[in-house]
Design a protein around this nucleic acid. Structure first.
Length: 649
DNA sequence: TGCGGAAGGG
DNA sequence: CCCTTCCGCA
């Protein structure tokens, strides 16, 4: 059924076509198939469709920073949406409500101060989905989100149904990812025949997907279920096969506004070449030149990936680096036993690239109390994260002494948030010094624009003994819960406060705060081995092969490490807390009771915003074993349904 | 205008 | 899950 053609009437455009406007997202972004839970087209896809079509530029168009679009004619957009969904009663009020739900999922942000203006969070998507993409080589305009230069159709891997993989299920990802993945899997597109439908290249996408799926499956079979590789793939490439990214970065023409450069990729020929993770490339700081290892890069075509330790190392290193650069959650680090990855070198301050990272160093502990509401003034970018303490989850056992701080603070909702900069220096002292544990919660307390909630290390003890995800959180400032807050902070430009000011295009790092969850491979052993990945320790002696000199160790890293180890263990459990904020409470009980499912997801998710559904971007990591089931089941479903389709109304 | 809770539908 | 519908609040 869902032949590509079906939707095709209007779609005539093939992938090759360039948009008149020039804005284009990677095709995968447009794929409608992805509706996670729902089979129908999702609003964000629909929006994307409209955005890409010239004919709708009068009603909705890209504008401003990357990923930012303006609904010029809300009523019309609503009408179109209503038509598509067969909801004649649709209006902008309703549609906007739906859009607001995306805040939590982090698919969208509201650009404050600008009417009817929203912004997609593609960065994370990209990062997550296309980690291998090398953005670096070609510098992309800020506005342009990294695109997988690789193929147009990228997809998640898929499918592996087996429990094994599952972790990903997406990796739990957050909405988009997961959704994408799923869609890919199922590929359904629905259209209402009302005529308003706007599908464009769906056909292509569909076709591509199908192919992809097939490949995946094949792939699946090939891959050994449990291999770490598997995880990698998922995490990074999504799928080794399909269209991976053929070449590192075929440069894309940067369309200034377009969120994504048009994907140039010709064909799927390549596979995932593991180029740098996008993050790396993206990072302002010069990274190590990482070359894709041959094995990886080589076409996976064969369907088989082989990682050799070295490759893995490189890869991991690169990944790690990117994690650092982006302030991603430590969880993002992949760890593989036996492989040690050199520490990433942290961006040295000197680097002009300074990117946003630079922020006033803060000590976490201090920060807690200090946090001035926007005090961060200094930082231009989103980088500084503020933390709030989060009250320990109720159920958890109390934490030990160290937490006094945390405890008190956490308990008090008012907690202060501190800004955290990713840069190494920052809180190093603080971090190092004590067991800083803080969970951050984004509470509206301070309205600093950029609030990011981060969970710090805080009391993870509560959860587990020690550290767990929290730390990760640190890096990953997640703005999950209070979406609005998030929005705010992100949009530097958007803030209503100074509407008059021109909006500087932000790189949207903002989003990067997103955390990726790392796959946790359960550390068999406990402790040490768990973290093979990063040897943060930066022992003097340690040579870091790749990272050239300057990597100083950051205290943070250290922390990560430690936590990691436990983290992994705990991850499964612990995360949920973070993840859920508000809702969690409500659910909390339930969770325990029967909802393993959710738990599973969450694990994966780092936190997604508000909740359940999902985060959009994160889902990298593999969830702990327990959750796998769910994922797998989902995958199954997805797979099964590949051909499903719903037609419209 | 924009936000987000609540209830409900598919 | 993903909205759709309603609604109160700011």
């Amino acid at each position: 059924m869902k032949t590509p053609a079906d939707t095709g009437d209007h779609l005539k455009s093939r992938r090759g076509k360039t948009l008149p406007t020039g804005f284009a997202f990677p095709e995968w972004a447009y794929k409608p198939e992805s509706s996670p839970g729902s089979r129908q087209i999702q609003l964000w896809h629909f929006i994307l469709e409209l955005l890409r079509k010239e004919e709708y530029h009068d009603v909705i168009a890209w504008q401003g920073d990357y990923g930012e679009f303006v609904i010029k004619d809300p009523d019309e957009v609503a009408r179109l949406w209503g038509a598509r969904k067969c909801k004649p009663q649709m209006n902008y009020d309703k549609l906007s409500r739906a859009l607001r739900y995306y805040y939590n999922k982090r698919i969208l942000h509201k650009t404050k101060g600008k009417r009817f203006t929203y912004k997609f969070n593609f960065n994370k998507l990209v990062l997550v989905n296309y980690p291998f993409i090398d953005m670096g080589s070609s510098r992309v305009p800020q506005s342009a989100p990294p695109v997988p230069t690789g193929g147009t159709h990228f997809r998640f891997p898929p499918s592996t149904p087996s429990e094994v993989l599952s972790s990903s299920e997406e990796l739990r990802s957050p909405g988009m990812f997961s959704s994408v993945a799923r869609r890919m899997a199922r590929g359904s597109v629905s259209d209402c025949s009302d005529g308003t439908s706007t599908n464009s290249e769906l056909e292509e996408a569909v076709g591509a997907e199908e192919r992809a799926v097939g490949q995946e499956r094949a792939f699946r079979g090939l891959l050994p279920p449990r291999l770490p590789h598997d995880s990698l793939f998922r995490v990074y490439g999504g799928a080794p096969n399909p269209a991976g990214l053929p070449r590192p970065a075929p440069r894309v023409h940067p369309e200034p506004l377009s969120p994504f450069p048009v994907s140039p990729l010709p064909g799927p020929g390549g596979l995932l070449a593991p180029t740098l993770s996008p993050a790396l490339s993206m990072t302002p700081t010069p990274h190590l030149p990482y070359t894709p290892s041959p094995s990886l890069s080589s076409p996976m075509m064969g369907s088989h990936f082989s990682f050799n330790p070295e490759d893995m190392k490189h890869y991991l290193q690169a990944h790690t680096q990117s994690v650092f650069n982006y302030h991603l959650s430590p969880r993002a680090f992949l760890h593989y036993p036996n492989i040690i990855i050199p520490q990433p070198h942290r961006p040295t301050p000197e680097k002009p690239a300074a990117h946003h990272l630079h922020g006033p160093p803060m000590s976490l502990s201090h920060s807690l109390s200090q946090q001035p509401g926007g005090g961060d003034d200094g930082h231009q970018h989103p980088s500084p994260y503020k933390f709030k303490l989060q009250p320990p989850p109720l159920g958890r056992k109390q934490r030990e002494a160290g937490s006094s701080l945390a405890t008190s603070s956490s308990s008090s909702s008012s907690s202060q948030s501190s800004s955290f900069t990713g840069s190494g220096q920052m809180s190093s002292s603080a971090l190092a010094g004590g067991p800083p544990k803080i969970k951050v919660e984004p509470i509206s307390d301070i309205e600093s624009e950029e609030e990011v909630e981060v969970t710090d290390i805080s009391e993870e003890d509560e959860l587990n003994h020690n550290n767990e995800h929290d730390e990760g959180d640190i890096f990953t400032p997640t703005a999950r819960h209070r979406p609005h807050l998030l929005n705010n902070h992100h949009q530097a430009n958007g803030n209503s406060s100074s509407p008059s000011a021109p909006l500087p295009p932000l790189p949207d790092d903002d989003e990067d705060e997103e955390v990726f969850k790392t796959p946790a491979t359960p550390p068999p052993g406990s402790g040490g081995l768990a973290f093979p990945l990063i040897s943060l320790k930066s022992e003097p002696g340690q040579p870091s092969p790749i990272s050239p000199g300057g990597t100083r160790c950051i205290p943070l890293k250290l922390r990560f490490k430690r936590r990691w180890s436990e983290d992994q263990k705990m991850e499964a459990d612990g995360e949920r807390d973070e993840a859920e904020d508000k809702k969690v409470r409500a659910e909390g009980e339930e969770e325990v009771a029967g909802k393993r499912e959710e738990a599973g997801r969450r694990e994966g998710e780092v936190e997604n915003g508000g909740g359940r559904g999902g985060g959009v971007i994160l889902g990298l990591m593999l969830p702990p074993a327990p959750t796998q089931r769910r994922a797998s089941s989902e995958l199954h479903r997805a797979t099964a349904q590949l051909s499903l389709e719903n037609t419209g109304c």
